[in-house]
């Protein structure tokens, strides 16, 4: 088919990249959509030369989730693997089993889901189970070879940190990563959703939870006493955290612990009781 560009898995130099995709939710209307960061993860995989992107979703296929899942297929890939999981299931064991079978070199996913629990813990738990290194807040993958990858991690205010990671590894994508390409209706409609059965482990803990809409938390007002546009800009672009602090290098654990303790007391997090 002319309309999609994924490299064939038969290609021997291809690096298998698994992309974990969830059903997103629009912040204003709550309508299902491709999750912003997951879509960026897929974009990163599709833009990677020699990558054989494997799309994976663990969840249910229904009228609500299908358009959202298909919108990932609208970005070009022809197939998505759908690991069947009921609503209250913990998708972690099923994902782990499938990923072990698949054996990718890289797993890409967003930092946290837009709907549901959205704790952002899944990548960490998954990396722990697989015993793989995890890099969070990815902005770009610079290069990948057979055994390692060079990546850029996004830090606040546009700073980047270059990291080298041994493969296989799990990478979570930051909103600083390139925007996902447009999803096209035709390929989205034609793409295959390959359903796979997987063991189900219900999330029993969740049953006891009470869920309610999040309240908007009050925000501290930033009072800016600037008189000129330049001052206002500087104030807006200034670091939000306090200056000062110190970098401790080559010190013993006890010295480090003392430093942390001292800071916590200074900040009033810990009180000197006696």
């Amino acid at each position: 088919m002319l309309l999609s560009t994924p490299r064939s898995s038969a290609d021997k130099t291809a690096i298998k990249v698994a992309v974990l995709l969830s059903v997103g939710s629009h912040p204003l209307t709550g309508r299902g959509r491709r999750a912003e960061q997951d879509a960026r993860a897929l974009e990163m995989a599709l833009a990677l030369p020699q990558a054989d992107a494997q799309l994976i979703h663990a969840g249910r296929l229904n009228d609500e989730s299908e358009p959202a899942l298909r919108s990932y297929l609208g970005m070009g890939p022809q197939q998505m693997t759908l690991i069947q999981q009921p609503k209250q299931a913990d998708v972690l064991p099923a994902l782990e089993k499938h990923l072990r079978q698949l054996g990718p070199k890289l797993i890409l996913c967003g930092s946290r889901a837009e709907a549901g629990e959205g704790s952002g813990l899944l990548p960490y738990l998954l990396a722990e189970k697989l015993g793989w290194p995890l890099i969070s807040g990815l902005a770009a993958i610079e290069s990948v070879d057979g055994s390692s990858a060079t990546v850029l991690q996004a830090l606040p205010r546009g700073q980047r940190r270059r990291l080298r990671v041994k493969l296989p590894a799990l990478l979570t994508i930051d909103s600083a990563a390139p925007v996902a390409r447009q999803s096209a209706f035709g390929p989205a409609r034609r793409g295959q959703l390959a359903e796979v059965d997987a063991p189900v482990q219900m999330d029993t803990e969740q049953e006891g939870w009470e869920v309610q809409p999040a309240r908007k938390r009050p925000k501290r007002l930033k009072i800016i006493k600037a008189t000129s546009a330049r001052d206002r800009f500087k104030a807006a672009a200034a670091k939000s955290e306090g200056s000062g602090g110190q970098v401790l290098k080559d010190i013993t654990a006890a010295e480090g612990a003392d430093a942390v303790l001292k800071l916590l007391m200074e900040e009033g997090v810990l009180r000197v009781s006696s």
């Binding site: 309309l3 609208g74 070009g76 447009q182 096209a184 209706f185």
Partner: peptide
């Protein structure tokens, strides 16, 4: 271009 290629 829009529906098949996603190139708006």
């Amino acid at each position: 271009l829009t529906l098949e290629r996603g190139e708006t």
